[in-house]
Design a protein around this nucleic acid. Structure first.
Length: 300
DNA sequence: TGAATTGTTATCGT
DNA sequence: AACGATAACAATTC
């Protein structure tokens, strides 16, 4: 499940191979992946040079020449990029040392460039073909013509300089929501998903059921620091590998809370417990993250 | 068979 | 009316 660190890793990994290249073809093998339509995306892409590859929240953003727009790629659950012509090694991300090319590239296997889960293909002017694979078909490739509108629909980038304690405090004031769903809300802070939200709350020593507007100053500072720290570590470790989907990250070895039910908390040794918060699986240390004093009770 | 996963959207309640 | 909570939904795997 790519969150900010995974998407950032992918963007960094693919940027140099894409920026400056001209797109000469675009195909989709599952048109619902593509919006507003395959033909519209193809028309915008073909002949256009990719001028930038960036990340905003969990979106990969391809910047096209003026009037061509921007292509947003959201990986959702299982989306991934893969080069069709890179030899068969699917894990193209930085983690593992590359195999000696000769072993794999003897002669290009004479197989279809796409696999069973390939939903789209970008053809570049140097002949390389970038595949968008997505087993669960949740991913989206969306062409937009108004970047401002997209950008303003999202909260601040947590690793940007303008994400300050004051800005976080402002976003939380007057919010009676529980911390966890609030942090998952991309309009509050952009880029956190289930894993890094649990990690940030654990690091900050805050219970996911705490009301957002009832944090003390010191707690706000801890939350701010924790969000940035866990995301930075995630990027440093090139993301989290949970299953076959995202194969190169190392962060799963360093998670403190997410998925560690029953294992000892790294800070105090208490067993991590699982609970459900807002329909999401949630993992906490019951000692480091004390439950709120008074349970919020729905008035009736 | 049900649970889990993300983010958007719709809907209902306060 | 604004906000919050909830469910449905897209599809697949275990």
């Amino acid at each position: 499940m790519p969150e900010l660190p995974e998407v950032e890793t992918i963007v960094r990994h693919h940027r140099d191979a894409l920026v400056g290249r001209r797109v000469v073809g675009f195909e989709s093998y599952w048109p619902r992946t593509v919006a507003p339509s395959v033909s519209a995306v193809r028309a915008a892409l073909c002949g256009a040079r990719i001028t930038a590859v960036d990340r905003r929240s969990k979106y990969i953003v391809l910047t096209l020449p003026p009037a061509r727009g921007w292509l947003l790629i959201h990986l959702r659950m299982s989306g991934r990029f893969e080069w069709a012509d890179d030899g068969a090694a699917p894990a193209a991300h930085g983690g593992k040392p590359a195999r000696p090319p000769a072993a794999r590239m003897r002669h290009k296997e004479h197989v279809s460039p796409r696999g069973p889960h390939t939903r789209a293909m970008f053809v570049l002017d140097n002949g390389r073909r970038l595949l968008f694979d997505d087993a669960r078909k949740f991913g989206r490739i969306t062409l937009i013509d108004d970047y401002q509108r997209f950008d303003s629909s999202l909260g601040p980038e947590p690793l940007a300089d303008d994400f300050t304690v004051a800005r976080l405090a402002r976003a939380l004031t007057g919010r009676a929501r529980m911390l966890k769903p609030l942090l998952l809300d991309q309009t509050i802070v952009a880029g956190l998903g289930n894993i890094y939200t649990d990690e940030a709350l654990h690091r900050a020593g805050l219970h996911p059921l705490r009301r957002a507007d009832q944090l003390r100053g010191a707690e706000l500072e801890r939350l701010h620091e924790a969000i940035r720290a866990v995301l930075e570590e995630g990027i440093r470790r090139q993301g989290t590998t949970i299953d076959w989907i995202y194969p190169s990250g190392q962060m799963q070895e360093y998670l403190q809370a997410y998925g560690r039910t029953g294992q000892p908390c790294g800070r105090c040794g208490t067993a991590i417990i699982a609970l459900r918060v807002g329909q999401r699986g949630t993992h906490i240390c019951p000692r480091c993250q004390p439950a709120p004093r008074r349970r919020r009770t729905a008035s009736r």
